[in-house]
Write a protein that binds this DNA or RNA. Structure first.
Length: 295
DNA sequence: GCCTGTTTACACGAGT
DNA sequence: ACTCGTGTAAACAGGC
């Protein structure tokens, strides 16, 4: 397996916080929850940087999982052998990365005490168990859901702990939060993300039609050398195979719910030329097809 | 013993 | 200067 050059992304720390990386890993999974070991694996697969000093960053990552309320622990059921619990994203942890920086959140997601109890205890756990069971049984997933359904990430469909108003929810890793802003204005580590990514050896396309792949190059493009995921339009954000994003009916389905919000940025994306091919194609076509998310 | 998970402490940088 | 988010180290407990 060829090793990328010194100045390539492989030797550089990715411009994402552990929270971002963890969330990506969770989002990339079919059931939107992963055991710790799989989160490790996801990160190491896609970010060669994290194949070293594993003890250090994995300790930090575990610290993040426990410390940040945006991650919730889901116990395994008896029929799910294995070590450790599953980790999922809190349904209300949207909008954390509104400023576009995946290094530093605008604001930490913090639960109220009562919400803490709710998220650590039923019915939350029951809810996830239910969803997980459905996923296992193929109920409610892309394969079984009715046309126009939300596809994956069922826990974000209607569930809300504190009654977030409709339209107010923006999942930090929703497509909207990835591309629904001025791409050129995005910052990472105090620098425009485009320049950071360019500096790190990430491909920085000039066409916005490549935004998604460029935003997650390690997921969709990294593969050239490491090949955890092929470089092709078959893969969308978080390394989710595009195939899984397509509804059997032929409709495109997002891997994450895309709240309908008539933001100029989103309109720009949809209106921009050159979006005929995925993932731009996937985005521009899927957005209108996605039903409103009631939260 | 190893892995997982929690907690505490500290340092650092960004934002105000 | 202060607050806040993040990264890191470390100690500890519990489960397998």
């Amino acid at each position: 397996m060829p090793r990328p050059g010194k100045n390539s992304y492989s030797d550089q720390k990715p411009p994402y916080s552990y929270i971002s990386l963890t969330a990506m890993a969770i989002q990339s999974s079919q059931e939107k929850m992963l055991p710790l070991s799989d989160i490790y694996k996801f990160i190491m697969d896609r970010f060669p940087y994290y194949r070293e000093n594993t003890q250090r960053w994995q300790n930090s990552l575990r610290h993040n999982l426990s410390f940040n309320d945006c991650f919730i622990k889901i116990p395994r059921r008896p029929d799910q052998p294995g070590k450790g619990s599953f980790w999922a994203l809190h349904p209300d942890c949207g909008d954390m990365f509104e400023n576009g920086s995946f290094l530093r959140r605008r604001k930490r997601f913090k639960l109220m005490r009562s919400e803490h109890l709710a998220s650590k205890n039923p019915p939350m756990l029951h809810y996830f168990h239910h969803q997980h069971q459905q996923a296992k049984l193929g109920i409610g997933g892309a394969a079984a859901e009715p046309p126009g359904g939300l596809g994956r990430l069922p826990q974000f469909q209607t569930y809300s702990i504190n009654g977030t108003q409709p339209g107010g929810f923006k999942h930090p890793f929703a497509i909207e939060n990835i591309i629904g802003r001025d791409y050129k204005g995005m910052m990472a580590g105090g620098l425009p993300i485009a320049s950071v990514m360019h500096h790190l050896g990430y491909p920085v396309p000039t066409q916005l039609s490549s935004v998604v792949n460029s935003m997650w190059p390690h997921v969709g493009m990294l593969s050239e050398s490491m090949a955890p995921v092929p470089v092709s339009s078959e893969y969308g954000p978080f390394g989710v195979p595009m195939k899984s994003l397509y509804h059997p009916s032929g409709q495109t389905m997002p891997a994450v719910p895309v709240p309908i919000k008539a933001t100029p940025a989103l309109g720009q994306v949809a209106a921009l030329p050159g979006l005929g091919s995925s993932p731009g194609h996937f985005l521009s076509r899927s957005i209108p097809a996605v039903p409103a998310i009631i939260l």
